[in-house]
Structures are given as C-alpha cells and as structure tokens.
Amino acid sequence: MIGTVAGLILRAIVVLSGTAIITFALLWNAPGDPAQAIAMARFDALLTEDVIDQVREEVGLNTSFWSAFVDWIAPLLVLDFGYSSVTGRPVGPDLWVAITYTFPLAVMALAIGLAISLPLAIIATKNPGGMLDRLAVATASMGTAIPAFWLGLLLILLFAVQLNWLPAMGARTPVHSILPAMTLGFGIAASLTRIIRSGILEARDQPFLPAIRRRGVPVRAIGRDHIAPHAAVPVVTVVGLELAFLLEGLVVVEVIFGRPGLGTFLTSAIVARDFPHVQAVVVLVALVFVTVNLIIDLIYKRIDPRIGEHDA
C-alpha cells in the first residue's frame, strides 16, 4: 500500500516536471523577441539594440535552453512568480485577488451541478427506459453539446436583457455571480447526470444484490449501503474530468461576464504578452490539476484496491 502511494506521488512529480518543461519550451519558442517585449515594458521608448541586449543578458535569455530553464524554474518552486512585465507589480498578490473571484464561482457552479444532476439521475433510474429517463438523457446530451460561452450569452439575453432580473457584467455583489455560476453549473449537471445515471444502473446489476434483498434488507438500506458506494466509483473518476471542464469553462465565462478572476487574468495577460502572468496561471492550474488527480487516485485505491494494478 505504502509502495503504491509513493509510486503515485512520484508519478505526480514526474508529470509536473514534464509539464514545466513543456510550458517553458512553449515560452522559449513563443514568437517575438521576449527581451524586446520586456525592454519595451520597462523603458518605454528607449529601445536601442544595446538596451535590448542588456535586458537579454540580465534576464538570462542569452543562455542555453536548459540553463535558462533552471533559472526559470528555481523561483517557481518556492511559488515566487516574479513581477509583471507590463505593470511591474509583483504577480503574487494580483494572482491571489483573481483567485478570490474564481474560487467561490467554481464552488457555486459545482454545487449547482450536483443539485441538478443527483436528483435528476435518481429520478431517471427509478424506471430505466421510461419517459422520465429518456427525457433526462436527452436533456443531458443536449447540455453537453452547448458551448459554455453560448449558454452564458443566452442567459444574459434572457435574464439580464429581456427580463432585467439579474446583473450580467462585473463582480461587485454576490448577485453578480448567479448567472456565471448557472452557466457553468448547467454544463456540469449535463455530464454528471449521464455518469451518475450509468453508475447507478451498473451498481444495480451487481449479482450480490438479489441475495441481499432475499435476506430481507429494506430497499432504502440497500440503496444507501450497497448501490451508492458502487455508483460512487465512476463519479470519483469523473471529478477529475469535471475539474478540467470547470477550468475551461471558467476562462470563457469570466471573460463573457467581465469578472476579474483567473480567466480574465489569463486572457488579458496573453493579449498583453505578460509572460510572468501567463506562466503563473499555467503553473497554478497544472499544480491544482495534478494534485486533485493524485488525490482521486489515492481515494480510488481506497474504494477499490483492484483498480490500477495493471496500469503503468
């Protein structure tokens, strides 16, 4: 057990290093001269060749790929994200402010997604293949086909423009996060419904259930003690996928609703070619993503020790 846990952690570290190398290779090969960009941000008009060369030397851009990589990764290992190449302010505090906008939104979206999908899946599986079941599956298929940005625009159109019930732009009050959270929550609900539904159906087919039933265990207790844990296995896996969906959706939704969260932070940094900002978000997202997936793997091992034995 300890061996596999150590193995999983080692694997996560290897993966993170790989991600770091890929990210740095991308920044290293990004078109345009980064030294020129930094010089421009720092000294505005004083752009002679000498100045650019000196900046290149100072930032360490004239060295080889690997030594530049070591210089780049060292401060990131202690979560020092450096200074914005546009504003010159330290990246850390600005990043933190963005997180305080993004995190509550993500939690709200997950809550909405679960609040819709769980009852829907349970109602649907009462009578598999029946009207309600088909309706739930159709709605879920529909939901996964709608791109987050269009759903967001439609909700703005309905609730902000036509009905004038909710504010659409900005993040001043908690009310402002209702529409973005709904946009993300519906998308999550669509994919979760399908997975929870098939999880319940599969758990119900388990051969030991008739035996338990014949022993006279009440229906409610069977659902709680025997079906739910089985249905939980695929759901746990999907949490990782949902997180990916959530992060992708957050970028788009924050831009549409003009929220100053991580997504807006990232896209405006890309447009301004503010590399320290971009890499801070990239490092943060990879860290969160790999950590969550590591935790999922560990939980997985606990729920079902058979899983992953033959996985490399």
Partner: peptide, 8 residues
C-alpha cells in the same frame, strides 16, 4: 500524462 496535466 504531462500533456494531460492541463485542461485541453
């Protein structure tokens, strides 16, 4: 896995 360590 390293490529997957990031939402696509």
């Amino acid at each position: 896995d390293s490529f997957l360590a990031f939402p696509e």
